[in-house]
Design a protein around this nucleic acid. Structure first.
Lengths: 336, 336
DNA sequence: CTGAAAGCGCTAACAC
DNA sequence: GTGTTAGCGCTTTCAG
């Protein structure tokens, strides 16, 4: 226990340089020498001292992952995906909750800088310019979610809402629906804007009848009331696409109250934002944001930049997709 | 950017030792000197190089947190609690998913050893002896969940199921219930054993009528069928305590099927194990395991040992407690 | 293919 | 109250 590279070198009868190179595969070594070193390592139960390694190399094997709050069901899947990839590449993920607090966020970034992390994934909903600046200033590779731009040492993941929307509209038309409405969120949120636009453009592209759209507020209540209005209108839709999960829940409640049977009398497609999989009891169709994939792609983005001496950033596209669940209880996690 | 302690020393006109001591408060410094140093640090945007710091001190500011899987709703709260405490003490938490895989777990532990972490919290459901051994062998402070023993450099958190059970039985008797049944899990699980025993002992202590108990399998179906049997028996209970949340869900479904109105006709108390708060729609009473507190206590346990030169371990008790929710939608997270 | 040795940036004696 | 300096354990030239 507590053996150092010197001990290994001594036991194997080689120099510490050789041990280092054997360990890192950083220069060719004779088969025999290598084996002796490996044996010594095993005998001594030697583990590389990462602190020393990081100091010498000027970068750590730690990658930062900034998320808003691990208690928000949006993030565990992302985190796991990121961690799995990191592990597969012999790196570790340092996950930090920003708690939606800019000050805490900046503080976390500073900690990461101090830790000499070579890359950071910032997957929070809000992105502070100071964070981007700090990271870029230290030449730390960074990947953001829906940042909207790419730069030197900056990659970006864009969520492709259209893909899932297309699938859902194709699905609904296949079921025979012709009047499909959309109930979304407040347009000051970019995600609400983008989802609505995806719906409208896709509806046009598929040659559907002009559809009712409604900007609610991404809450259960909002979905409930918006649904009421739509159903009471002269041309009630036979299917509704919701802009997020809470809205869809509200719609479903309205449907239940009105004695409709879901999804037979009214088809509802929800946007699997946050807590749908855990929440929903009845069978429901949703457009799923593949959270695990986001995490994995985020890692890949960092890894790619780190392998490139001049940290060239690029854009990654992650598609949403339709998930049709059955009503088995308890509801499984979505496919991802 | 990229300034080192030497730069700071130069700019402040002091020795690097002074800078170090100012930064760490590790020896008294003159007010004036300190201010100059601090100013220099600010001007240069200097951040301590943790790698160097760790190397020199022989221990890092990273604490390991081993959990089974962050996607399991049991863990995010724990994780957040641990991280918050760590941050408050100027440390970082390195969270690792073991994926219930002993090999991966051991591998993670080795990584943590290499990272020179001074402490590790092992909050997985299964605990591998090899992990305990490795950690102890490297004199790394460790805290476990329900390990059942305490040792040099080993602390233990024990979940006090009785507390919540007492509260729930008091609550139910207060509602007028006299025949209260218990539907638990398979006895080969220690948690099932301990919960059942807590129920029985508490029932006796409170002088309740001898109660029916039933060992189901901690699944929704199991709860459903166990409930059927109980309700069909000659002396059907008027209230049921479930050993875990899935069981409670099954019970509730059985109650709905049978046209009962919950909780008016049948009181059900669930054990808030994993996904209750996210899942349940109707009002429900549960015995909550305060997950955030587990995380915080785990950190405190480590911190306490680290502050003590000979790493004396001790036992921590975390009580469960009754949580009565209303049926507002969406169901809030439990109080914790 | 291998070894010697100069750092990496910081901490912690030890001097003053 | 402050400065000097010898490491911490590793990586990585530079020689051989």
């Amino acid at each position: 226990m507590g053996a150092s590279i010197k001990d290994v070198a001594a036991r194997a009868g080689v120099s510490i340089a050789t041990v280092s190179h054997v360990l890192n595969g950083t220069r060719p070594t004779q088969q025999q020498t290598r084996e002796r070193v490996l044996a010594a390592i095993r005998d001594l139960g030697y583990a590389q001292n990462q602190a020393a390694r990081n100091l010498a190399r000027g970068r750590s094997t730690l990658l930062g992952l900034l998320i808003s709050d691990i208690r928000n069901p949006f993030f565990p899947d992302i985190t796991a995906g990121f961690q799995d990839q990191a592990l597969a590449h012999d790196m570790d993920a340092l996950v930090m909750n920003t708690n939606y607090d800019p000050q805490r966020t900046l503080n976390s970034v500073r900690r990461l800088v101090g830790l000499q992390v070579p890359g950071v994934a910032v997957l929070t909903s809000q992105i502070d310019p100071a964070v981007i600046e700090t990271l870029a200033g230290h030449r730390i590779a960074a990947v953001y979610l829906d940042l909207g731009r790419v730069d030197q040492s900056i990659s970006n993941i864009v969520l492709d809402y259209e893909h899932g929307i297309i699938e859902s509209l194709e699905y609904l038309t296949q079921l025979g629906h012709r009047r499909i409405a959309y109930i979304g969120g407040p347009l000051h949120l970019t995600s609400a804007q983008r989802r609505k636009r995806a719906f409208m453009e896709t509806a046009v592209r598929l040659g559907l009848e002009p559809s009712h759209t409604f900007d609610a507020d991404f809450t259960v209540k909002g979905g409930y009331f918006a649904c009421s209005k739509l159903l009471n209108g002269s041309t009630a839709p036979t299917a509704i696409v919701a802009g997020n999960d809470l809205t869809a829940i509200g719609i479903l409640h309205r449907a239940y109250d009105g004695k409709l049977r879901v999804p037979e009398d009214l088809s509802v497609v929800g946007f699997d934002d946050i807590l749908f999989a855990e929440y929903t009891q009845p069978a429901l169709t949703t457009v799923a944001v593949p959270r695990g994939e986001i995490g994995r792609v985020a890692f890949q983005a960092l890894w790619t930049m780190l392998s490139d001496p001049d940290l060239t950033g690029r854009e990654y596209r992650v598609g949403t997709r339709l998930v049709i669940r059955d009503s088995t209880l308890p509801p499984g996690k979505n496919a991802d």
